[in-house]
Design a protein around this nucleic acid. Structure first.
Lengths: 223, 223
DNA sequence: TTCATCTGATTGTCAGATAATCTAGCGGCG
DNA sequence: CGCCGCTAGATTATCTGACAATCAGATGAA
Protein backbone atom coordinates (compact mmCIF):
# COMPACT_ATOMS: atom_id res chain seq x y z
CA UNK A 1 0.00 0.00 0.00
CA UNK A 2 1.25 3.45 -0.82
CA UNK A 3 1.12 5.81 2.10
CA UNK A 4 0.24 9.11 0.58
CA UNK A 5 1.33 11.80 2.91
CA UNK A 6 0.54 15.44 2.89
CA UNK A 7 3.56 17.38 1.71
CA UNK A 8 5.07 19.23 4.63
CA UNK A 9 4.92 22.98 4.62
CA UNK A 10 8.50 23.42 5.58
CA UNK A 11 9.74 21.23 2.73
CA UNK A 12 7.74 23.27 0.29
CA UNK A 13 9.27 26.37 1.81
CA UNK A 14 12.74 24.92 1.32
CA UNK A 15 12.02 24.24 -2.32
CA UNK A 16 10.53 27.66 -2.86
CA UNK A 17 13.50 29.42 -1.32
CA UNK A 18 15.89 27.42 -3.46
CA UNK A 19 13.74 28.16 -6.43
CA UNK A 20 13.79 31.85 -5.55
CA UNK A 21 17.58 31.84 -5.50
CA UNK A 22 17.78 30.15 -8.87
CA UNK A 23 15.04 32.23 -10.48
CA UNK A 24 16.64 35.49 -9.41
CA UNK A 25 20.06 34.19 -10.27
CA UNK A 26 21.44 35.14 -6.86
CA UNK A 27 25.06 34.57 -5.97
CA UNK A 28 26.85 34.26 -2.65
CA UNK A 29 26.31 37.30 -0.49
CA UNK A 30 23.17 38.54 -2.22
CA UNK A 31 20.26 39.55 -0.07
CA UNK A 32 17.15 37.47 0.37
CA UNK A 33 13.76 38.81 1.43
CA UNK A 34 13.14 38.92 5.16
CA UNK A 35 11.52 36.02 6.95
CA UNK A 36 8.29 37.96 7.25
CA UNK A 37 8.23 38.77 3.56
CA UNK A 38 8.93 35.18 2.61
CA UNK A 39 6.16 34.03 4.91
CA UNK A 40 3.68 36.39 3.27
CA UNK A 41 4.84 35.48 -0.22
CA UNK A 42 4.49 31.78 0.39
CA UNK A 43 1.30 32.21 2.39
CA UNK A 44 2.63 30.38 5.43
CA UNK A 45 3.62 31.36 8.95
CA UNK A 46 6.98 32.84 9.74
CA UNK A 47 7.79 29.83 11.88
CA UNK A 48 7.65 27.47 8.94
CA UNK A 49 9.85 29.80 6.95
CA UNK A 50 12.25 29.79 9.83
CA UNK A 51 12.49 26.02 9.94
CA UNK A 52 13.23 26.08 6.25
CA UNK A 53 15.89 28.76 6.46
CA UNK A 54 17.48 27.12 9.47
CA UNK A 55 17.76 23.87 7.53
CA UNK A 56 19.26 25.63 4.55
CA UNK A 57 21.56 27.55 6.84
CA UNK A 58 22.81 24.31 8.30
CA UNK A 59 24.08 23.32 4.89
CA UNK A 60 25.39 26.78 4.18
CA UNK A 61 22.97 27.53 1.37
CA UNK A 62 21.78 30.64 3.20
CA UNK A 63 23.23 32.70 6.00
CA UNK A 64 21.30 34.60 8.62
CA UNK A 65 22.63 37.52 10.61
CA UNK A 66 20.75 38.97 13.51
CA UNK A 67 19.56 42.46 12.79
CA UNK A 68 20.64 42.27 9.17
CA UNK A 69 18.76 39.62 7.27
CA UNK A 70 19.24 36.60 5.09
CA UNK A 71 21.90 36.28 2.45
CA UNK A 72 22.86 33.53 0.06
CA UNK A 73 25.72 31.52 1.49
CA UNK A 74 28.41 29.23 0.24
CA UNK A 75 28.50 25.54 0.94
CA UNK A 76 31.74 24.48 2.44
CA UNK A 77 32.56 20.84 2.69
CA UNK A 78 34.61 21.29 5.82
CA UNK A 79 31.54 22.09 7.84
CA UNK A 80 29.68 19.24 6.20
CA UNK A 81 32.40 16.80 7.10
CA UNK A 82 32.32 18.02 10.64
CA UNK A 83 28.60 17.39 11.03
CA UNK A 84 28.45 14.16 9.09
CA UNK A 85 31.60 12.60 10.40
CA UNK A 86 30.71 12.81 14.06
CA UNK A 87 29.38 9.28 13.97
CA UNK A 88 30.69 7.20 11.12
CA UNK A 89 28.10 4.51 11.68
CA UNK A 90 25.36 6.70 10.27
CA UNK A 91 26.89 7.10 6.86
CA UNK A 92 25.11 4.85 4.47
CA UNK A 93 27.43 4.07 1.62
CA UNK A 94 29.00 0.87 0.47
CA UNK A 95 32.78 1.15 0.97
CA UNK A 96 33.40 -0.89 -2.13
CA UNK A 97 31.32 1.49 -4.22
CA UNK A 98 33.03 4.52 -2.72
CA UNK A 99 36.42 3.18 -3.67
CA UNK A 100 35.36 2.26 -7.19
CA UNK A 101 33.77 5.68 -7.62
CA UNK A 102 36.94 7.41 -6.53
CA UNK A 103 39.02 5.33 -8.91
CA UNK A 104 36.81 6.24 -11.85
CA UNK A 105 36.71 9.89 -10.90
CA UNK A 106 40.40 10.41 -10.24
CA UNK A 107 41.83 8.24 -12.97
CA UNK A 108 39.36 9.81 -15.37
CA UNK A 109 40.85 13.27 -14.98
CA UNK A 110 44.44 12.16 -15.45
CA UNK A 111 44.58 12.62 -19.23
CA UNK A 112 43.20 16.08 -18.73
CA UNK A 113 45.69 16.84 -15.97
CA UNK A 114 48.62 15.63 -18.04
CA UNK A 115 47.56 17.84 -20.91
CA UNK A 116 47.29 20.93 -18.75
CA UNK A 117 50.51 20.12 -16.99
CA UNK A 118 52.35 20.46 -20.25
CA UNK A 119 50.91 23.91 -20.78
CA UNK A 120 51.18 25.25 -17.26
CA UNK A 121 54.25 24.49 -15.19
CA UNK A 122 52.70 25.78 -11.97
CA UNK A 123 50.47 22.72 -11.80
CA UNK A 124 53.35 20.31 -11.46
CA UNK A 125 54.98 22.74 -9.06
CA UNK A 126 51.97 22.71 -6.79
CA UNK A 127 51.76 18.94 -6.64
CA UNK A 128 55.46 18.58 -5.94
CA UNK A 129 55.29 21.14 -3.17
CA UNK A 130 52.61 19.04 -1.51
CA UNK A 131 54.73 15.93 -1.77
CA UNK A 132 57.55 17.80 -0.08
CA UNK A 133 55.27 18.67 2.80
CA UNK A 134 54.45 15.00 3.27
CA UNK A 135 58.00 14.30 4.30
CA UNK A 136 57.75 16.39 7.43
CA UNK A 137 54.47 14.88 8.62
CA UNK A 138 54.49 13.53 12.15
CA UNK A 139 50.98 12.51 13.11
CA UNK A 140 48.06 10.78 11.43
CA UNK A 141 45.84 13.84 11.51
CA UNK A 142 48.11 16.01 9.42
CA UNK A 143 48.80 13.11 7.08
CA UNK A 144 45.07 12.81 6.41
CA UNK A 145 44.75 16.53 5.80
CA UNK A 146 47.62 16.42 3.33
CA UNK A 147 46.35 13.31 1.60
CA UNK A 148 42.96 14.92 1.03
CA UNK A 149 44.69 18.05 -0.14
CA UNK A 150 46.78 16.09 -2.61
CA UNK A 151 43.87 14.31 -4.21
CA UNK A 152 41.86 17.50 -4.28
CA UNK A 153 44.69 19.31 -6.00
CA UNK A 154 44.87 16.52 -8.52
CA UNK A 155 41.21 17.05 -9.36
CA UNK A 156 41.62 20.81 -9.40
CA UNK A 157 44.44 20.44 -11.87
CA UNK A 158 41.93 19.16 -14.38
CA UNK A 159 40.15 22.51 -14.20
CA UNK A 160 36.80 20.76 -13.90
CA UNK A 161 35.05 22.35 -10.95
CA UNK A 162 32.08 19.99 -10.88
CA UNK A 163 34.37 17.04 -10.37
CA UNK A 164 36.21 18.85 -7.60
CA UNK A 165 32.91 19.43 -5.83
CA UNK A 166 31.98 15.80 -6.19
CA UNK A 167 35.39 14.70 -5.02
CA UNK A 168 34.95 16.73 -1.88
CA UNK A 169 31.69 14.97 -1.19
CA UNK A 170 33.24 11.56 -1.67
CA UNK A 171 35.95 12.45 0.80
CA UNK A 172 33.33 13.20 3.41
CA UNK A 173 32.11 9.64 3.19
CA UNK A 174 35.62 8.30 2.88
CA UNK A 175 36.81 9.81 6.07
CA UNK A 176 36.30 6.79 8.26
CA UNK A 177 38.67 4.59 6.32
CA UNK A 178 41.38 7.12 6.53
CA UNK A 179 41.39 7.02 10.27
CA UNK A 180 42.40 3.38 10.31
CA UNK A 181 45.48 3.93 8.17
CA UNK A 182 48.55 2.43 9.77
CA UNK A 183 51.75 4.36 10.07
CA UNK A 184 53.58 1.86 7.87
CA UNK A 185 51.16 2.73 5.10
CA UNK A 186 51.99 6.42 5.15
CA UNK A 187 55.32 5.92 3.49
CA UNK A 188 53.82 3.71 0.82
CA UNK A 189 51.20 6.33 0.13
CA UNK A 190 53.77 9.09 -0.15
CA UNK A 191 55.87 7.08 -2.58
CA UNK A 192 52.77 6.36 -4.56
CA UNK A 193 51.91 10.04 -4.83
CA UNK A 194 55.43 10.70 -5.96
CA UNK A 195 55.26 8.14 -8.74
CA UNK A 196 51.89 9.42 -9.95
CA UNK A 197 53.24 12.92 -10.40
CA UNK A 198 56.42 11.60 -12.03
CA UNK A 199 54.43 9.61 -14.56
CA UNK A 200 52.17 12.54 -15.32
CA UNK A 201 55.10 14.88 -15.78
CA UNK A 202 56.65 12.37 -18.15
CA UNK A 203 53.39 12.26 -20.07
CA UNK A 204 52.83 8.59 -19.31
CA UNK A 205 49.13 8.71 -18.50
CA UNK A 206 48.67 4.95 -18.61
CA UNK A 207 51.29 4.33 -15.96
CA UNK A 208 49.91 7.13 -13.80
CA UNK A 209 46.44 5.64 -14.08
CA UNK A 210 47.63 2.22 -12.99
CA UNK A 211 49.51 3.66 -10.08
CA UNK A 212 46.59 5.80 -8.90
CA UNK A 213 44.16 2.91 -9.20
CA UNK A 214 46.35 0.72 -7.08
CA UNK A 215 46.84 3.54 -4.60
CA UNK A 216 43.13 4.05 -4.03
CA UNK A 217 42.25 0.38 -4.14
CA UNK A 218 44.71 -0.29 -1.35
CA UNK A 219 41.92 0.88 0.93
CA UNK A 220 39.96 -2.24 0.04
CA UNK A 221 42.17 -4.26 2.33
CA UNK A 222 40.85 -2.30 5.27
CA UNK A 223 37.19 -2.86 4.55
CA UNK B 1 39.13 42.81 16.89
CA UNK B 2 37.43 39.60 17.82
CA UNK B 3 33.68 39.85 17.67
CA UNK B 4 32.54 37.66 20.48
CA UNK B 5 28.99 36.62 19.87
CA UNK B 6 26.60 34.91 22.12
CA UNK B 7 26.40 31.24 21.17
CA UNK B 8 23.02 30.54 19.66
CA UNK B 9 20.71 28.30 21.55
CA UNK B 10 19.82 26.11 18.58
CA UNK B 11 23.47 25.49 17.75
CA UNK B 12 24.02 24.31 21.27
CA UNK B 13 20.98 22.11 20.86
CA UNK B 14 22.44 20.63 17.68
CA UNK B 15 25.67 19.82 19.47
CA UNK B 16 23.87 18.36 22.45
CA UNK B 17 21.73 16.11 20.29
CA UNK B 18 24.78 14.88 18.41
CA UNK B 19 26.48 14.37 21.72
CA UNK B 20 23.49 12.41 22.96
CA UNK B 21 23.69 10.10 19.96
CA UNK B 22 27.38 9.47 20.51
CA UNK B 23 27.11 9.10 24.28
CA UNK B 24 24.32 6.54 24.04
CA UNK B 25 26.00 4.92 21.08
CA UNK B 26 22.82 5.02 19.05
CA UNK B 27 22.64 3.48 15.60
CA UNK B 28 20.36 4.15 12.69
CA UNK B 29 16.73 3.60 13.59
CA UNK B 30 17.16 3.98 17.34
CA UNK B 31 14.72 6.16 19.21
CA UNK B 32 15.53 9.61 20.48
CA UNK B 33 13.70 11.37 23.31
CA UNK B 34 10.70 13.43 22.29
CA UNK B 35 11.04 17.09 21.48
CA UNK B 36 9.46 18.02 24.78
CA UNK B 37 11.83 15.82 26.74
CA UNK B 38 14.84 17.18 24.91
CA UNK B 39 13.68 20.73 25.59
CA UNK B 40 13.36 20.02 29.29
CA UNK B 41 16.69 18.21 29.43
CA UNK B 42 18.54 21.03 27.72
CA UNK B 43 16.60 23.69 29.58
CA UNK B 44 15.46 25.45 26.42
CA UNK B 45 12.18 25.93 24.63
CA UNK B 46 10.73 23.31 22.38
CA UNK B 47 11.05 25.63 19.41
CA UNK B 48 14.81 25.74 19.64
CA UNK B 49 14.92 21.98 19.87
CA UNK B 50 12.75 21.86 16.78
CA UNK B 51 15.02 24.12 14.79
CA UNK B 52 17.91 21.91 15.78
CA UNK B 53 16.17 18.67 14.84
CA UNK B 54 14.92 20.13 11.59
CA UNK B 55 18.46 21.08 10.65
CA UNK B 56 19.74 17.64 11.53
CA UNK B 57 16.83 16.09 9.69
CA UNK B 58 17.78 18.03 6.59
CA UNK B 59 21.10 16.24 6.52
CA UNK B 60 19.51 12.94 7.41
CA UNK B 61 21.13 12.66 10.81
CA UNK B 62 17.74 12.32 12.47
CA UNK B 63 14.31 11.43 11.17
CA UNK B 64 11.01 12.72 12.50
CA UNK B 65 7.71 10.97 12.01
CA UNK B 66 4.45 12.55 12.97
CA UNK B 67 2.80 10.76 15.81
CA UNK B 68 5.81 8.52 16.35
CA UNK B 69 8.85 10.46 17.40
CA UNK B 70 12.46 11.06 16.52
CA UNK B 71 14.81 8.38 15.39
CA UNK B 72 18.43 8.37 14.35
CA UNK B 73 18.68 8.51 10.58
CA UNK B 74 20.94 7.22 7.89
CA UNK B 75 22.86 9.64 5.74
CA UNK B 76 22.82 8.80 2.08
CA UNK B 77 24.59 10.58 -0.70
CA UNK B 78 21.53 10.96 -2.86
CA UNK B 79 19.82 13.30 -0.44
CA UNK B 80 22.95 15.37 -0.09
CA UNK B 81 23.57 15.79 -3.79
CA UNK B 82 19.99 16.88 -4.16
CA UNK B 83 20.73 20.02 -2.19
CA UNK B 84 24.32 20.37 -3.28
CA UNK B 85 23.40 21.94 -6.58
CA UNK B 86 24.16 25.18 -4.85
CA UNK B 87 27.78 24.30 -4.41
CA UNK B 88 29.94 26.99 -5.93
CA UNK B 89 31.77 24.44 -8.05
CA UNK B 90 28.59 23.67 -9.89
CA UNK B 91 26.99 27.07 -10.08
CA UNK B 92 30.12 28.65 -11.48
CA UNK B 93 30.93 25.88 -13.89
CA UNK B 94 30.77 26.79 -17.53
CA UNK B 95 29.10 24.53 -20.11
CA UNK B 96 32.43 23.29 -21.38
CA UNK B 97 33.31 21.95 -17.94
CA UNK B 98 29.94 20.32 -17.52
CA UNK B 99 30.37 18.46 -20.78
CA UNK B 100 33.90 17.35 -19.96
CA UNK B 101 32.75 16.20 -16.54
CA UNK B 102 30.01 14.13 -18.06
CA UNK B 103 32.38 12.54 -20.52
CA UNK B 104 34.74 11.50 -17.74
CA UNK B 105 31.94 10.24 -15.56
CA UNK B 106 30.06 8.23 -18.16
CA UNK B 107 32.99 6.84 -20.09
CA UNK B 108 34.60 5.95 -16.79
CA UNK B 109 31.87 3.53 -15.84
CA UNK B 110 31.84 1.72 -19.19
CA UNK B 111 34.41 -0.95 -18.28
CA UNK B 112 32.41 -1.65 -15.17
CA UNK B 113 29.15 -1.79 -17.11
CA UNK B 114 30.58 -4.16 -19.71
CA UNK B 115 31.80 -6.47 -16.98
CA UNK B 116 28.43 -6.58 -15.24
CA UNK B 117 26.63 -6.94 -18.53
CA UNK B 118 28.37 -10.21 -19.09
CA UNK B 119 27.20 -11.51 -15.74
CA UNK B 120 23.66 -10.19 -15.78
CA UNK B 121 21.64 -10.30 -19.00
CA UNK B 122 18.88 -8.08 -17.62
CA UNK B 123 21.17 -5.05 -17.85
CA UNK B 124 21.48 -5.27 -21.62
CA UNK B 125 17.78 -6.01 -21.79
CA UNK B 126 16.95 -2.81 -19.96
CA UNK B 127 19.08 -0.64 -22.19
CA UNK B 128 17.69 -2.18 -25.36
CA UNK B 129 14.15 -1.67 -24.17
CA UNK B 130 14.90 2.02 -23.77
CA UNK B 131 16.31 2.23 -27.28
CA UNK B 132 13.11 0.66 -28.57
CA UNK B 133 11.08 3.35 -26.88
CA UNK B 134 13.11 6.04 -28.62
CA UNK B 135 11.72 4.96 -31.97
CA UNK B 136 8.20 5.98 -31.07
CA UNK B 137 9.13 9.42 -29.79
CA UNK B 138 7.26 12.34 -31.37
CA UNK B 139 8.13 15.51 -29.51
CA UNK B 140 11.25 17.05 -28.01
CA UNK B 141 10.02 16.82 -24.46
CA UNK B 142 9.67 13.08 -24.39
CA UNK B 143 12.94 12.70 -26.27
CA UNK B 144 14.71 14.59 -23.51
CA UNK B 145 13.06 12.48 -20.82
CA UNK B 146 14.17 9.32 -22.56
CA UNK B 147 17.67 10.59 -23.17
CA UNK B 148 18.12 11.37 -19.50
CA UNK B 149 16.68 7.99 -18.63
CA UNK B 150 19.11 6.25 -20.95
CA UNK B 151 22.20 7.90 -19.53
CA UNK B 152 20.96 7.36 -16.00
CA UNK B 153 20.40 3.69 -16.71
CA UNK B 154 23.90 3.48 -18.10
CA UNK B 155 25.28 4.82 -14.84
CA UNK B 156 23.00 2.59 -12.78
CA UNK B 157 24.30 -0.39 -14.69
CA UNK B 158 27.68 0.18 -13.12
CA UNK B 159 26.12 -0.42 -9.73
CA UNK B 160 27.90 2.62 -8.32
CA UNK B 161 25.25 4.64 -6.54
CA UNK B 162 27.45 7.64 -5.75
CA UNK B 163 28.07 8.17 -9.44
CA UNK B 164 24.38 7.87 -10.22
CA UNK B 165 23.64 10.60 -7.69
CA UNK B 166 26.28 12.82 -9.19
CA UNK B 167 25.03 12.13 -12.68
CA UNK B 168 21.56 13.25 -11.67
CA UNK B 169 23.00 16.48 -10.38
CA UNK B 170 24.90 17.14 -13.59
CA UNK B 171 21.76 16.58 -15.62
CA UNK B 172 20.02 19.36 -13.76
CA UNK B 173 22.63 21.80 -14.98
CA UNK B 174 22.67 20.22 -18.38
CA UNK B 175 19.01 20.81 -18.92
CA UNK B 176 19.50 24.16 -20.57
CA UNK B 177 21.38 22.85 -23.58
CA UNK B 178 19.06 19.96 -24.13
CA UNK B 179 16.21 22.22 -25.04
CA UNK B 180 18.03 23.52 -28.08
CA UNK B 181 18.43 20.09 -29.63
CA UNK B 182 17.26 20.05 -33.23
CA UNK B 183 14.98 17.39 -34.54
CA UNK B 184 17.60 16.24 -37.03
CA UNK B 185 19.86 15.44 -34.11
CA UNK B 186 17.42 13.08 -32.48
CA UNK B 187 18.03 10.36 -34.97
CA UNK B 188 21.77 10.74 -34.69
CA UNK B 189 21.48 10.47 -30.92
CA UNK B 190 19.35 7.36 -31.11
CA UNK B 191 21.77 5.67 -33.48
CA UNK B 192 24.56 6.64 -31.18
CA UNK B 193 22.87 5.04 -28.19
CA UNK B 194 22.33 1.94 -30.25
CA UNK B 195 26.00 1.64 -31.15
CA UNK B 196 27.12 2.20 -27.57
CA UNK B 197 25.04 -0.70 -26.33
CA UNK B 198 26.12 -2.87 -29.23
CA UNK B 199 29.78 -2.23 -28.50
CA UNK B 200 29.29 -2.92 -24.81
CA UNK B 201 27.44 -6.14 -25.50
CA UNK B 202 30.27 -7.21 -27.78
CA UNK B 203 32.74 -6.44 -25.02
CA UNK B 204 34.45 -3.72 -27.02
CA UNK B 205 34.82 -1.12 -24.30
CA UNK B 206 37.24 1.04 -26.28
CA UNK B 207 34.82 1.50 -29.15
CA UNK B 208 31.94 2.20 -26.76
CA UNK B 209 34.02 4.81 -24.99
CA UNK B 210 34.84 6.60 -28.22
CA UNK B 211 31.23 6.54 -29.30
CA UNK B 212 29.94 7.85 -26.00
CA UNK B 213 32.55 10.60 -25.86
CA UNK B 214 31.58 11.79 -29.29
CA UNK B 215 27.91 11.56 -28.38
CA UNK B 216 28.23 13.81 -25.34
CA UNK B 217 30.70 16.19 -26.92
CA UNK B 218 28.25 16.84 -29.74
CA UNK B 219 26.64 19.25 -27.28
CA UNK B 220 29.68 21.48 -27.55
CA UNK B 221 28.51 22.72 -30.91
CA UNK B 222 25.50 24.24 -29.26
CA UNK B 223 27.37 26.21 -26.63
C1' DT C 1 34.48 66.52 9.66
C1' DT C 2 34.11 63.10 13.27
C1' DC C 3 32.21 60.62 16.74
C1' DA C 4 28.64 59.03 19.88
C1' DT C 5 23.88 58.03 20.07
C1' DC C 6 19.32 56.91 18.62
C1' DT C 7 16.07 54.47 15.85
C1' DG C 8 14.06 51.19 12.90
C1' DA C 9 14.53 46.76 10.84
C1' DT C 10 15.48 41.97 11.33
C1' DT C 11 16.61 37.75 13.35
C1' DG C 12 16.53 34.95 17.89
C1' DT C 13 13.84 32.98 21.45
C1' DC C 14 9.99 31.96 24.12
C1' DA C 15 5.02 30.44 25.55
C1' DG C 16 0.74 28.48 24.47
C1' DA C 17 -2.62 26.43 21.54
C1' DT C 18 -4.61 23.56 17.82
C1' DA C 19 -4.33 20.19 13.91
C1' DA C 20 -2.64 15.98 11.90
C1' DT C 21 -0.91 11.55 12.37
C1' DC C 22 0.71 7.28 14.24
C1' DT C 23 0.88 3.33 17.80
C1' DA C 24 -1.10 0.41 20.92
C1' DG C 25 -4.67 -1.48 23.32
C1' DC C 26 -9.64 -2.42 23.78
C1' DG C 27 -13.71 -4.60 22.54
C1' DG C 28 -16.99 -6.64 19.23
C1' DC C 29 -17.85 -10.32 16.07
C1' DG C 30 -17.39 -14.51 13.39
C1' DC D 1 -9.65 -18.28 19.66
C1' DG D 2 -8.41 -15.02 16.19
C1' DC D 3 -9.38 -11.18 13.24
C1' DC D 4 -10.94 -6.49 12.47
C1' DG D 5 -12.34 -1.79 13.38
C1' DC D 6 -12.19 1.83 16.66
C1' DT D 7 -10.92 4.79 20.30
C1' DA D 8 -7.41 7.12 23.27
C1' DG D 9 -3.00 8.74 24.10
C1' DA D 10 1.30 10.29 22.46
C1' DT D 11 4.00 12.96 19.30
C1' DT D 12 5.16 15.81 15.68
C1' DA D 13 3.41 19.82 12.52
C1' DT D 14 1.86 24.28 12.27
C1' DC D 15 0.14 28.68 13.69
C1' DT D 16 -0.31 33.12 16.54
C1' DG D 17 1.53 36.62 19.24
C1' DA D 18 4.97 38.56 21.87
C1' DC D 19 9.45 40.23 23.46
C1' DA D 20 14.68 40.29 23.47
C1' DA D 21 19.07 40.83 20.99
C1' DT D 22 21.58 42.69 17.48
C1' DC D 23 23.02 45.46 13.66
C1' DA D 24 23.14 49.19 9.83
C1' DG D 25 22.33 53.59 8.87
C1' DA D 26 20.49 58.16 10.15
C1' DT D 27 20.80 61.83 13.26
C1' DG D 28 22.81 65.33 15.69
C1' DA D 29 26.35 67.48 18.64
C1' DA D 30 31.28 68.80 19.29
Amino acid sequence: MQTLRRPKVRDQAVDQIKQYIVAHNLASGDRLPTETQLAETFGISRLSVREATKSLEFLGIVEAKTGVGLTVGRIDMGRLTEHLGFHAGLLDADPQQLIDSRVILETGVLPCVARRMGADASIEQRLRTLIEQFRSVRDLKSWIVLDIEFHRTLLESSGLKPLVAFGDLLHVFFQRFRESVKKAEWKVGIESHQRIVDCLAAGDVTAATGELRQHIESHKERV
